[in-house]
């Protein structure tokens, strides 16, 4: 397995970090992720779009935290001991989004990623680059730029 991951570029394989938004199991390329934290005490920004939970201080940078549930048209993420912020780099800026639960990291062969259906667990298909099937689950590979687009 380890060997595999080292050779993933050659073999057209990517590592997917998976997490739950509501009932939907989503994944993004782990290389997009800068860090995952549970920095929950965000500062609320009045007048901000409702999907913005607030801003946090990430080692001196102000990072907006987005409720991916709300942003994608689902019910808001419920803060719990399982919820986490995933910090990514998007369009020259660090952004965080909150997810309900972090799941495994797994290897996915890019060839095996299939086009997304119209809907995954209530989420619209346009937010996905495709789906990846494992033995016991279906992972929606999130198009993070689309998902975090500023409306």
């Amino acid at each position: 397995m380890e060997k595999n991951s080292l050779e993933k570029n050659d073999n057209n394989v990517m590592e997917l970090a998976t997490f739950f938004i509501g009932d939907a199991l989503c994944g993004i390329d782990i290389l997009n992720i800068q860090e995952i934290n549970r920095h929950m005490e965000a500062t609320w920004v009045p007048q901000a779009p409702d999907y913005v939970i607030g801003v946090i201080n990430l080692r001196g940078r102000i990072v907006s935290i987005i409720d991916l549930g709300k942003k994608l048209g689902l019910s808001p993420i419920k803060k719990s001991k399982n919820s986490r912020n995933i910090i990514i780099q998007s369009q020259d800026e660090q952004l965080g989004f909150m997810v309900d639960l972090i799941s495994d990291v797994l290897l996915a062969e890019i060839d095996k990623i299939e086009p997304a259906p119209a809907n995954i667990g209530g989420l619209q298909g346009r937010y996905f680059k495709g789906v990846f099937k494992t033995k016991d689950s279906l992972i929606g590979v999130l198009d993070i730029d689309e998902a975090l687009k500023n409306q």
Binding site: T43, Q47, V52, I62, Q94
Partner: peptide, 25 residues
């Protein structure tokens, strides 16, 4: 410190800062 792109539409703020206790104001 500047605010992210999702908050650009909020006219009431000139930016954000980090207070002594690490929280954002």
């Amino acid at each position: 410190k500047p605010l992210g792109r999702h908050l650009k539409a909020c006219k009431g703020y000139a930016g954000a800062t980090i207070m002594g206790d690490g929280r954002v104001a």
